[in-house]
Simulated scan of single mutants.
Amino acid sequence: MRGAEADRPDGADESTERPCTCVIAHVQNDEERVRVQAALDNALKPNDAQAVLVACMQLMQPCPARDEPVTR
């Protein structure tokens, strides 16, 4: 679907590999945490329930890429 692509941060390219492979990508560093927290704050102002849910999921733990390996 044209126009539905997620915006990439400046300097990120297609070859950049994210360590998080979860369905909802968790934050991996402090810069991403600040950006997602700002998105959550913005979603709370107009009571955008879907955006709040996505931002909360991104902030939730555990993330196998960020935390200790989990044996399954």
Results as ranks from 00 to 15, higher is better:
V27R: 02
Q50R: 14
R8N: 13
T71Y: 06
C56M: 13
A65I: 09
E68Y: 08
E17W: 07
N47T: 00
V52T: 06
R2E: 07
A55W: 01
D41I: 02
K45T: 08
V52W: 00
R35V: 13
I24K: 01
V27H: 05
V36F: 09
A39G: 07
E68A: 11
P19R: 04
V34N: 03
A25H: 10
N29W: 11
V27G: 01
E14F: 15
V27C: 10
N42R: 15
Q58Y: 00
E68T: 10
P64S: 05
A55G: 04
A65V: 08
P46R: 07
E32N: 10
I24Q: 05
Q61E: 15
R18K: 06
V36G: 07
E17Y: 05
L44I: 11
M57D: 08
A4C: 04
R2Y: 03
M57K: 12
L40S: 10
A25E: 10
P19Y: 00
D10L: 15
V27S: 02
Q58T: 00
A6Q: 11
M1S: 05
L53A: 13
G11Q: 14
Q37K: 12
V52S: 04
E32A: 12
E5L: 06
G11D: 15
P62S: 10
A55R: 02
Q50W: 10
H26Q: 02
D48V: 05
A25V: 11
C22D: 10
C56L: 14
P69T: 09
A51T: 01
V27E: 03
E5V: 03
V23E: 15
A6W: 06
N42L: 13
D67G: 09
G3H: 00
A55Y: 01
P9N: 05
Q61L: 13
C20I: 05
N47Y: 02
N29M: 12
R66P: 00
D67Y: 05
P69G: 03
A55P: 01
E17N: 07
C20G: 04
D41G: 11
R8L: 15
V34L: 10
C22E: 13
M60F: 01
A6K: 09
A6Y: 07
P46I: 03
V36K: 03
G3C: 00
S15Q: 14
R33N: 01
P64H: 04
R35H: 12
G11W: 14
A43E: 03
G11R: 15
E32S: 11
R35C: 11
P19A: 06
P19D: 02
A55M: 04
T16I: 12
M1R: 01
E14L: 14
A55N: 08
A51W: 01
A55S: 15
A51E: 08
A12E: 15
V70S: 02
A6G: 05
P62H: 02
V54K: 05
